[in-house]
Nucleic acid binder design. Sequence first.
DNA 1: CTGTTAGCGCCTTCAC
DNA 2: GTGAAGGCGCTAACAG
Lengths: 315, 315
Amino acid sequence: MQNRLTIKDIARLSGVGKSTVSRVLNNESGVSQRTRERVEAVMNQHDFSPSRSARAMRGQSDKVVAIILSRLDSLSENLAVQTMLPAFYEQGYDPIMMESQFSAEKVTEHLGMLRRRNIDGVVLFGFTGISDAILAPWRETLVMLARDAKGIASVCYDDEGAITLLMQSLFDKGHRHISYLGVPHSDVTTGKRRHDAYLTFCKQYKLHPVAALPGLAMKQGYDAVASVTHSETTALVCATDTLALGASKYLQEQRNDTLQLASVGNTPLMKFLHPEIVTVDPGYGEAGRQAAHQLIEQINGRAQPQQLVIPAALT
Amino acid sequence: MQNRLTIKDIARLSGVGKSTVSRVLNNESGVSQRTRERVEAVMNQHDFSPSRSARAMRGQSDKVVAIILSRLDSLSENLAVQTMLPAFYEQGYDPIMMESQFSAEKVTEHLGMLRRRNIDGVVLFGFTGISDAILAPWRETLVMLARDAKGIASVCYDDEGAITLLMQSLFDKGHRHISYLGVPHSDVTTGKRRHDAYLTFCKQYKLHPVAALPGLAMKQGYDAVASVTHSETTALVCATDTLALGASKYLQEQRNDTLQLASVGNTPLMKFLHPEIVTVDPGYGEAGRQAAHQLIEQINGRAQPQQLVIPAALT
DNA sequence: CTGTTAGCGCCTTCAC
DNA sequence: GTGAAGGCGCTAACAG
């Protein structure tokens, strides 16, 4: 590397001591206005920036956080990460990324590596199978997304609200035979909560529930449509955009363009491919922003772990 | 944070000096077998790992690289990053990620920040508008993907080969009226090179070229299909999967299922939505692997910048 | 208000 | 072979 200059150089160039430079650097009080300005001038002039490693060594924190997403190509996680990155950079944190591929072992492995690296904090996109035990040591510095766990901070989507909004909207449009395509209950949030909300709505409005819970993949949506659509079915609610994408492919192949699809997601891909769908926005972007904010506050001891829920909104 | 132990502690615990521990840590010669084993035992026993910041300060690098992708939700870039991440972690590098959103200013800004942070290296997903001038200072430690620039390392796709394979395959299947949907020539690789390959093939086989170059977005593909399909057209080659997705939506709406689509991409989404499409795999995964490898080699001074091209393959 | 003095954890001479 | 001493760039006491 080349000769980067240090606070010592800045001190010499502006005729003050190292500590004064340090004080200016950290916006500490106790420096005369004149001195401060002079030092700042020299810094700008030489495009000075302090060594991260040196600060880290003194302070304990190197201002690095990790984002563990389940899959790089998850539409929803992408939206959340897109707002998260700027939020972290704004506060001087460098986010490193890892992929769990929905494997709890990978998460454990990654967290272990992060522990050794002495990272400041972690945003983890949760999924079924992550045990509380492996999260426990991170109580102070981990925020989980899309899933909650007791004792640790989380940002969740309003699963119940999202489905209810969808159902209400369809009901208001006159639909009385609404089927549901979802995810098994082993997945608590996307699976159980959304399905339960569907059942509750049906009971409340005296509709006959027809549902299948094949899983998260497009292909599973595609394969399951037939099992939940009868001759009288007029609408189909899907737990996720991905599932809806699979379903709509099936319907297209059947030349069925009367069934009204609905899903929670509001991803750009969906909006382009099927603008006619009824969609609810779970607030992925907002969730990312909140998660980053919450993590930073916790790292700096300004907040305790807390469970947030992002409100869903019809689009 | 808690009291992590330091080489000093390890030294005390194993009854040797700090420098001996350091030697063991760095696999240096000049330590007796017995001592080495004893020290290593203590290290393992306490799950010791040296402070990154301290090593970084002592002149070594901090083993952090950056990946600047154009968009987090780019299907092709996702595939490349998915292979890149493990490659970096394997070598002990932490990859931080940034999004350029196809803005040259953002790239400049990000590179500036990375320069100040004294990062080890950068993988940049290239696009039109990045000037050689802003890349020049990074000659030694930047690898560009999907685009080349003189003097700096790059990993490109075989644009010409990909299109030629597609055309040949369609030709062999009997198609004689093949249209083309692409990207403006201002984009050298995806735009000009692929279009040129199309034209060359047409000339060589005496086909009549019919092309439009609307851009990269799905909607643009959707809108442009009509302008390149005549009554005799039997096949349509698209420069990217995204474009093809737009085109296929249009065709579906027109209830046209006779036109054979073809595209370069081979992304999972495409494979699911339209398995009937003729597709060529540009080797995104391989490109990611190569880029990571090349960058690491350059960082360690074991390789000079070089331009690589990933061969395309019919799927 | 400001400079001097100690380290933070590690690597690197340089003696022993 | 091995240990002691010095210093990387910075911050945090402690003196002036």
